[in-house]
Every structure is written in structure tokens, then in C-alpha cells.
Design a protein around this nucleic acid. Structure first.
Ligand SMILES: [Mn+2]
Ligand SMILES: [Mn+2]
Ligand SMILES: [Mn+2]
Ligand SMILES: [Mn+2]
Lengths: 216, 216
DNA sequence: TTATTTTTTTAGATTAGTCTAAATTTTTTA
DNA sequence: TAAAAAATTTAGACTAATCTAAAAAAATAA
């Protein structure tokens, strides 16, 4: 089995390399709040275990077995988040740090039974897809509100920023997962966006629009 | 906060000193599958943190703050065991090792919500009492079947041996928590015991009778 | 009560994961 | 393309937790 630190590195590398297939030492260090030199040490260990492809100075990518482990950690993280919100009535802005700890509970059987207990949910409280027990999940096509044109409408389906301050702000504006919204205006001066949600109009900054994802 | 190793030491010291109020270095080492020299090192650290009373060569006892932590770990352990059996349909012989890992999830709020979610259970799947959120629990008076006289009856309410082989054996004999049994005979030769359970008579060894606890 | 055995502690290493500071390699800029 | 800047790795050190082997203390037995 792998240590907690190894699991966190694999997960970080997975998230960082989703786009360009590669993660740099400094990116990993900043995502794990550690130093580049510590990262280099760990990269050597993970490469030794054949969980990553590592050429010094060139960044890293996950091997198939490294990716399998990363996805299993992400599955656990998202299922525990779902459990905390749906069964224990936590708010969506309270569960991330708890899940960071729970994702390292090692038993696969436990997580598969938890999945069944909750009815095989497809998305976590933040709209992120939950991998099934074989590691498969469909990454639906979401657009940031900032990339949508006036008069288009869609369903709020995800967030890019998972910080509690952002999630609490969305709660206050009643912009939560599942809400139907319509973009009614885009202010040219600062790229802020006016959206219609239910009966209200809400005015959000460009930054917020950038971090709020909708399905059209 | 305390490390995983520290928590395990405190829990071990708690269990070992329940009876005589004191735990020896060797007892702790054997209960944690570690060496006496490692234990000595840790005892110094725990004493430094004022979690135990330690005089070299004299064994240790928990201070009030050490005991508080130990009981909180035990509460978590037993609540997670209850969750695994009642919600995820694990068998009572499958949950101990999983709970050993889960008991270190640090959030108190999480465990209090879990407690509420399950309806504040009073006993874990092995009959052990679950401390409430203030660390209080009544340690019920149970007797081993080996200490009961012929014709007395009672309810199976606990086990002294938590190993899966013992628990599976009890399952096979249908001697599980909550069953009403009556002691019908005690064989003088080997101190084995004949018990009536429901419609059947079951013959158990002295060792089994010693590890099976009933409420009269 | 002295000698033997058992228990416990100390001494000295080891491993995982981290750090700072220095050296090296790569990338960018001029 | 040479100098400067940025990124990365190496060197050396530290902490937590563990180990083996040796020393010391306590308990037991003769
Ligand atoms: Mn999360
Ligand atoms: Mn999430
Ligand atoms: Mn247990
Ligand atoms: Mn139990």
C-alpha cells in the first residue's frame, strides 16, 4: 500500500495534469503547500515505484497504475463529501477538509458499500463527477458563466473554486448546484455579469462568473 | 492535535489500566505489537505533554486530559463499528480493523453528527458501551458464562475476545448479542458448558464460556 | 541476602517526510 | 547567443517513530 503523503502527491499530480498531461515540480509544491526540494524527493520515490513517469527537469505524468490510485482517492473524497452533506447535513462549504482526511481510509470494500448505501450518486456536492468502482466517470462539458453569451440559459452544475468563502458567497446569492439561470446582461466595462435566477436578478463579478460552471 | 501513534498509545494505556489503574511498558509493547524501547520513548513524549503520569520503571497511568483523548478515540471506534454494521451491512467480525483506521478521523463535529444520524446508539456491535459526546458511559455489569451456575439464564451482551475467528464461531453456534440463553449443564471434567439457546442446546468449551459475557 | 531472571531504559541506527541553502539546469530576455 | 532569471535538483540537517543491542534497575529465587 501507499502512504498518505504518496496518495496526496498522486492526487495532486492527477489534478494538475488533467489538462496538459504534465505537472511541474513547482506546481506540485504549491498545490501541496510544500517546498520544491521535498517534491523532488517524492518524485524519485514515486518513479521508483513506477507510479509516475519522471525525467529530471521535465515534470511528471502518471503511469496507468498511478492514475488508478489517484482516481480511487478522488472517488473516496467525493463519496465522503456526498455522505457528509446528504446524510450528516453538513453544508457544501464545510466538507472538503473533512474529506481530505477520510479519502485515505484504505478499504475499497468499505467505499463500495458506502456508494451502494447512498444509491450510487453521480456527482459530489460541488457538482464534480464521482468515479464508479472501476474508476470510470463521464466528465461532462461545462462552461464558465463568463464564457456564455447574453440570453443563453443553463443549469448551475459545478464550481472551479472550492474555497468556503466562494461557496458561502454563492449560497448567499442563491446560486447553487441545480439552479436554472439565464444570463441577462454582460457589462462591457468590467466584464461583470447579470444573471436571472428564479425571481431575482443577481449581479456577479467577472471572477465569480469565471468560477461558476453551467450546463447549457 | 495528537499523532496517530500517540492516540494508539493512549487508547492502549486506557484499556490496560481500566482494571488496576496502571499499565506497564511491556504490556503496552505487546498490545501495540511494538518493542519496549519504542514504548519508553513514547512514554517520555506523552509525559512531556502531560497526558500520562510516568515514573521510570513504575508503569504509567493516564492524566485526566489523556483519559479524555482515549475515551474520545474509543467513542469514535465504536460509533464507526456501529455504522459499518448497521448502515453498510458488514458483519460484526469484519469491522474492528476498519474502525482502527477510522477512529483517527479527527473531527468531533463529524462524530457527533454521525452519532445523531444513527440515533445515539448505546452499544457497539460487540456489546461494548459507546461513550456519549461528553465521554460518559455506563459500564454495565456483565458476567462470563463460565461464572454462572446451572439453570440461570441471561442475555448475551458482550465478548471478551474480539477476534474474527471467535466471532465467526459464535455466529455459527447462533450465540450472538441479544440472544437469551440458559445454562443447562456444566461438565465437571473440563468445565465446558451446555447452554440452551432458543430451540437448541449448544455445548461450548471453558475457553468460549470465559469469553462470552451475559447480563443476568 | 545474595544471585539470577525479568523488566525497563539508554545508546546508537534507520526510514519517511520535510526543510534551508547551495548548486545546477533550463528558460527567458536583451 | 550570452547574460540574467526562473525552475529544479542536490547536500546536509531535522523530527517522529521505529528497531537492535547493551546497560541498568527491579523483582524473584535460592
Ligand atoms: Mn473536495
Ligand atoms: Mn467536491
Ligand atoms: Mn473494535
Ligand atoms: Mn467493538
Amino acid at each position: 500500500m501507499n502512504t498518505l503523503a504518496e496518495e496526496n502527491y498522486l492526487k495532486s499530480i492527477y489534478h494538475l495534469s488533467v489538462n496538459d498531461g504534465n505537472a511541474s515540480t513547482n506546481q506540485i509544491a504549491s498545490s501541496l503547500n510544500t517546498k520544491a526540494s521535498s517534491v523532488t524527493d517524492m518524485l524519485k520515490k514515486l518513479a521508483e515505484k513506477a507510479l509516475i513517469n519522471y525525467t529530471p527537469y521535465q515534470g511528471v505524468s502518471l503511469t496507468p497504475s498511478g492514475e488508478k490510485i489517484a482516481i480511487s482517492i478522488i472517488r473516496k473524497h467525493r463519496l465522503w463529501e456526498y455522505f457528509l452533506v446528504e446524510k450528516l447535513n453538513f453544508k457544501w462549504d464545510q466538507v472538503h477538509d473533512l474529506a481530505e482526511e477520510m479519502e485515505h481510509i484504505s478499504s475499497e470494500e468499505l467505499i463500495d458499500r458506502l456508494d451502494k448505501f447512498m444509491g450510487y450518486p453521480k456527482h459530489d456536492p460541488h457538482g464534480d463527477p464521482i468515479p464508479d468502482c472501476n474508476g470510470r466517470f463521464n466528465t461532462h462539458e461545462l462552461k464558465p458563466v463568463s464564457a456564455v453569451t447574453v440570453n443563453q440559459s443553463g443549469i448551475i452544475s459545478g464550481v472551479r473554486d472550492h474555497s468556503s468563502s466562494f461557496l458561502q458567497y454563492l449560497d448567499k446569492k442563491q446560486l447553487t448546484i441545480g439552479c436554472k439561470i439565464m444570463i441577462t446582461d454582460i457589462i462591457e466595462y468590467d466584464h461583470s455579469v447579470v444573471v436571472q435566477t428564479g425571481n431575482k436578478e443577481v449581479h456577479i463579478s467577472r471572477e465569480v462568473a469565471n468560477n461558476l460552471l453551467i450546463a447549457l
